[in-house]
């Protein structure tokens, strides 16, 4: 019986989600970009990402180089395609890590309350008082700019927001009647948190995580832009934009193509997240 009801719930969500055309477009773009990232090696070999040719530098888009070439004469199409791996990986990895950390800390704080809540909340407050970008900047400055450190920096700066969100969601859910009921027939705390509280709190958390992927991609790009992110020759999109900035008058296409991809990727996650908000919110059901 329960299985069937669950299936019905997902079908319900999907039905509502489908109604939202923008969200559907977002989903299609998202899938396309994920496919590009997964199949990058088949689309264009990695060698083209790094192979230089002084004679072919700063060429505008052509049949041979669809997106043109950069200042080293590297093929921009190959760089943008392979760049999707870095950007998506950063977005997804940081969001998931921040979510995991946020879930553990936020759920404990929200559920246990008291001293646990106080300690976690105060530490969270400390982190929340520093603008995230500043925190990331300081961490990158301390550790140095490479993929791993960038991920650490962005994750650290977004954990506190997650803790706070999950804490409040859990607190709301924990006060609902069915949790009280579960408590009263003697279910263990762990079971209550993982079987009852978290699943019911999933809506806002899923939405937040989806949308945070897009803001993480943008943060990473921003850090790369002020020279505190991933360093070339890695074709992360923000690094591509940062290289392109210097040539924006002579080779505007260098700024255009990675820009389009970054906007499309961020937008697709935002659209999906927005679509999910409506689809998952039980209060908005009509």
């Amino acid at each position: 019986m329960a299985e069937k009801r669950k299936g019905g719930l997902y079908r319900d969500i999907w039905r509502r989600y489908k109604k939202n055309k923008a969200a559907m477009i977002g989903l299609v773009i998202m899938i396309a970009i994920v496919l590009i990232a997964v199949c990058a090696d088949w689309i264009v070999p990695y060698e083209k990402v790094i192979s230089q040719s002084g004679a072919e530098r700063l060429q505008p888009p052509s049949a041979a180089h669809w997106f043109g070439t950069d200042e080293y004469g590297r093929d921009l199409f190959a760089r943008v395609i392979h760049g999707s791996r870095y950007s998506l990986f950063i977005g997804v990895a940081t969001s998931l890590m921040a979510l995991a950390a946020g879930a553990v800390l936020g759920a404990s704080a929200g559920y246990f309350g008291g001293v646990v809540d106080n300690i976690i909340s105060r530490i969270t407050d400390v982190f929340l008082c520093v603008p995230p970008i500043l925190l990331s900047l300081a961490v990158v400055a301390a550790l140095g700019g490479n993929l791993r450190n960038l991920i650490i920096a962005i994750t650290i700066s977004s954990i506190p927001g997650n803790v706070r969100l999950i804490r409040s969601v859990v607190m709301t859910v924990a006060e609902e009647d069915y949790i009280e009921a579960a408590c009263s027939y003697g279910a263990s705390r762990k079971r209550i948190i993982f079987r009852h509280v978290l699943p019911n709190a999933m809506g806002p958390i899923i939405v937040n995580t989806t949308m945070s992927i897009s803001s993480m991609i943008l943060s990473a790009a921003g850090l790369s832009f002020i020279g505190m992110g991933i360093q070339p020759p890695s074709p992360e999109w923000g690094a591509l934009l940062s290289e392109a900035e210097a040539y924006m008058f002579t080779a505007p296409y260098m700024l255009l193509f990675p820009g389009i991809f970054i906007v499309l990727a961020a937008l697709s996650f935002n659209l999906v997240g927005d679509g999910l908000t409506d689809a998952l919110d039980p209060k908005l059901r009509n």
Binding site: E71, Y72, A141, G144, G145, N146, Q231, P232
Partner: peptide
């Protein structure tokens, strides 16, 4: 790192291989 990128390419042509490590 831009200089290193080009030098890496030139060295490879004569059979010397290097990996680039970027530091702050």
């Amino acid at each position: 790192s831009n200089i290193a990128t080009v030098v890496q390419n030139d060295l490879k042509e004569v059979g010397l291989e290097v990996d680039i490590e970027v530091k702050e």
